[in-house]
Amino acid sequence: MKQGESFEARPDPVLGARLRAGLDPGDGARFVQSLLARLAAPPRPVEVLAQWARPGFAAALLLASALGYWMTRHSLEPAGAGPAAEVAAADLTLDRDALMVAAFDDTQ
């Protein structure tokens, strides 16, 4: 089957005319007049938001990615890293030794 046969490659003038009439929006000059009045007025909050929506979303996404990276990096860091962690580990070792001594004393 040829494409032209199956899909009617040219516009149908009768259908086009009926559609044009059916969708006729009326006075174009009045529409433009009200559009220009809207452009002259200060922008509505929704328009300002719409203008900022895309860059705002991109910035939020970037921030969320950076925060996610930072949190992942810190949560995966080994416990022994850093001087504070070393002190905590030493305290834990001491406590464990003390506990073992206490337990030994109890058994006697």
């Binding site: 559609l19 044009r20 969708l23 006729d24 929006p25 174009g28 000059a29 529409f31 433009v32 559009l35 220009l36 452009l39 002259a40």
Partner: peptide, 17 residues
């Protein structure tokens, strides 16, 4: 804005339909 008004008048029919 008048230039944009001319553009709008030219394309308003298409957009509104």
């Amino acid at each position: 804005r008048d230039a944009f008004g001319t553009l709008a008048l030219r394309h308003a029919g298409t957009v509104r339909r």
